[in-house]
Design a protein around this nucleic acid. Sequence first.
RNA 1: GACUUGGUAGCUCAGCUGGAUAGAGCAUCAGCCUUCUAAGCUGAGGGUCAUUGGUUCGAAUCCAAUCCAGGUCACCA
Length: 633
Amino acid sequence: MSIANTIQKNVIVALSVLHNQLFTEKNFQINQTKPEFEGDYTIVLFSLVKSLKQSPDAIGNQLGQYLLNTSPELFVGFNIIKGFLNLSISNAFWTTLLQKNYSNIHFGKKENYGKKVMVEYSSPNTNKPLHLGHLRNNFLGWSIAEIYKASGYEVIKSCIVNDRGIHICKSMIAWQKYADGATPQSTGIKGDHLVGDYYVRFENDLKAESQILINKIKLADLSDFNGVVLEKLDKLLITLTKLDEIKDEEKITKLHNEIKEIARNSTQVIAEAKQMLLDWEEDKPEVIELWKKMNGWVYEGFDATYKLIGSDFDKIYYESKTYLLGKYIVQQGLDKSVFFKKEDGSIWIDLTADGLDEKLVQRKDGTSVYITQDIGLALQKYEEYKIDNSIYVIGNEQNYHMKVLQLICKKLDMPNADNIFHLSYGMVELTTGKMKSREGTVVDADDLVDEMIATSQKHTEELGKVKNFTAEELKDLYNTIGLGAMKFYLLRVDPKKTMVFNPEESIDFHGFTGPFVQYTHARIKSILRKESLADYQQPLASSDLLKMEKEVIVMLEQYPDAIKQATIEYNPSVIAMYVFNLAKTFNSFYAEHSIANAETTDKKQLRLQLATMTANILKSGMELLGIRVPERM
RNA sequence: GACUUGGUAGCUCAGCUGGAUAGAGCAUCAGCCUUCUAAGCUGAGGGUCAUUGGUUCGAAUCCAAUCCAGGUCACCA
């Protein structure tokens, strides 16, 4: 139990005894004492004034005295300033804590207690390479998995590969048309990038063809259209003329977008893609073969990237395999009247009673949509692993989709539908604005990682501290630092929030960064290498503590709480901030006091233990972020 | 338009289950390497916590309204 909790319990008992009534942790607040006052922890007394009808000073004096009398081993003094009761904790408590835990590399982590959680993350599309946003996703997913493990969960890391759907057909069609048999081997281009190039090629064709249609529509030439679409266009054009007269810009833009959408959907290339999707779902051999070939290239590319960034999965699901289960469940749901069929054959769910809309779950041509396979997968996960909780690491642009999915799972009476949690993270923007693939402002994951590693190499060489490293050790070090900087940079902010990626800031190795923490660790290790173990394994003779020594131990004590908070909030940034603050506190201590040349042997021993435990926790905490710490740098 | 998330120092972010004089990092300026790794340490300047009103002994934090920005509302995924 943390010291803050211990104090809380003591205060509850004390108040209950002193005032002969029941108190809970909600009746008062406990904080760390601000540095400008004497004491370690502070009880805010104002909230007690009303119910006890006594002055803050009187309540505080009574409480402080009682705590001192009943737990003299823990409390050694108190003072009251303006309604705040500041309690001083005994040095013996801190030194005992240190002595007991300094060599425990599992400090702060809990034993497995039998709960299973699945963390789904990464979930790439197999039509383009990974970019900066995927990196945030991957790092978050990995870190959440590690944090849950540390909290005693059994964790299964999973990934759903979106290897099916009309977007996949797009790159296949462009490849058929333009590639002339080009492969990653023949071109020397990484597989995922090669396929991505053809996806872009398709999008360009689509844009060009739909532009021709739009131009014709603007001239009121509707000869390319017929049926329902023609009727709709007719109506749109009439409304547009009216709007032009009253100059309602907003609505005009909206209508233009609708026309654009119709034009895109009426193009020859889209028709080809749609046909290919149908052929695909009907298992036409030539489509399946092409799909397998191109998917294979993408996986090779992804594998290389995953290996580079240190991401992996215990279970990989493929949409191409789960969509059938999804369709099956949709059929079952139809029989149970959870879903309903419209005249044209499309299948829907009515969520208007829940404040949402009607949602399509299967197209009129019988092919499945995005959510169809998600329904299948949700069930499959539970049946395969009997998991207690399911965490989805998915961008906040899909909040609505996930809300719908959860609702559908509930309506289908799926087990544990309530234990689905969408870890919704914000987009990564650039200093110049949003990333847009169409404008070529997307930051490619492979490029970025390479650049970070190159920067760490340049920086390390300039500092010239690594003369006796082997070539292999150097390579490993550059990787550790470069990736450490990048992961820390992406994980140090609250996942929920949209964040700005500043290239210059991201390669900064000073201050609130991964390399700062790594450096602190390496520096401690350097000292410990020079000291013999025997020097710091004796019991401490004295519990004298300097201010800065105590500050470090107080930080160390809070590690378990940081893990707990990160778990509850699904928030790795809690760990990043904690680890940074610990390193900072230690560095201040380090600059003021010598470890190797401490004043007495007892002091030296205390400081060696302090340094050891700090290094252990820095390593452990960074591991929760998926970041390695070097022994030397 | 509806729903939703956010607005804190020049920049990037903490703090938000109400508590003492609102904190970091970067950037700027001034110091610290004949002693354990200076990727470090110390100090200075920098704030109408979007605005207005409310609740409270006490509001960056809770409530309401307004303004601004992002996201979603597809037979795309």
